[in-house]
Design a protein around this nucleic acid. Structure first.
Length: 263
DNA sequence: ATGACTCAGGAACTGAGA
């Protein structure tokens, strides 16, 4: 089973771009972020035509997450619990059944948090605390669990081309990285780091100042695996070349291959 | 030093991104 994640920065603008990548990579499950539309405006037909079931949790204008799956969804739950006043569409959980049992999938778009020392950073940290509580609960199920998305966290200096440029940024502040470590310390494995120690593994390049041409990137999109999923990890990778396509998202897709038979 | 791009909404710009 191949599970991928991609912050597409508008699913309507990128639909054909995404379809081309699907044909190339053939993922079984895809987690999308920043779809930037309401549920009714999601281009379902583009993906249903390619054999995917679609689950959407969108909102007007910005944010929004979605799931594509070749296997039908057994269960779909929008929203990260822990704050009833939070109306931002950033989290969607689903269960997919396979020949070997269920696989639980999460697509998330973690708040950016900039600028620091504001309510935006406070929202980010509280959101991460909620994600930690969610993960602790789900890990108790002892299932294959794949938590995917744009975490807006640079985990370590080796995850940025120019780490010095990020020291005062919400993506790299010590408290942000502490929360990310608290998450992985629950027993979730960073799939990309499980297969490579390279210091050039980026998933985002800014549109500005020739960041892509200079390879001035950061690694902020992640796939975290429960122990039961990590046991089945075969490979993980980053589809960097997609950033060079026409009208690209500023993020690229990443994926894992798990030794779990579909039906 | 600063800003540099890109997108949605809605019709000239602002907010948001990271």
């Amino acid at each position: 089973m191949r599970v991928a994640t991609w912050n597409v920065n508008s699913v309507r603008l990128r639909a054909e771009n995404i379809a081309a990548w699907l044909a190339e990579r053939s993922p079984d499950v895809v987690c999308l972020q920043e779809i930037k539309c309401v549920d009714e405006a999601f281009p379902r037909e583009t993906f249903e035509r390619l054999g995917y079931n679609v689950a959407v949790h969108g909102q007007k204008g910005f944010n929004g997450v979605a799931l594509l799956s070749k296997r039908p969804f057994e269960d779909v739950t929008p929203g990260l619990h822990g704050d009833d006043s939070d109306v931002q569409a950033r989290f969607l959980e689903a269960v997919v059944s396979t020949q070997e049992g269920v696989v639980r999938i999460v697509t998330l778009y973690l708040p950016n948090g900039n600028p620091p020392h504001t309510e935006k950073y406070d929202y980010k940290i509280k959101w991460m605390d909620r994600l930690i509580r969610f993960s602790r609960e789900r890990l108790m199920l002892e299932e294959p669990l794949v938590v995917c998305g744009d975490f807006n966290v640079i985990p370590a200096s080796s995850d940025a081309k120019n780490p010095a440029a990020w020291v005062n940024d919400a993506l790299f502040l010590p408290q942000t990285r502490e929360k990310f470590r608290a998450l992985t310390n629950l027993g979730l494995t960073d799939a990309i780091r499980a297969v490579s120690d390279s210091d050039q593994l980026f998933t985002f390049w800014d549109y500005q100042a020739g960041a892509w041409q200079r390879d001035n990137g950061i690694r902020i999109d992640h796939i975290l695996l429960s122990p039961q999923a990590t046991d089945r990890l075969v490979d993980a990778g980053i589809d960097k070349h997609v950033r060079g396509w026409d009208k690209p998202s500023d993020h690229v897709p990443i994926y894992v291959d798990l030794d779990i038979a579909e039906r």
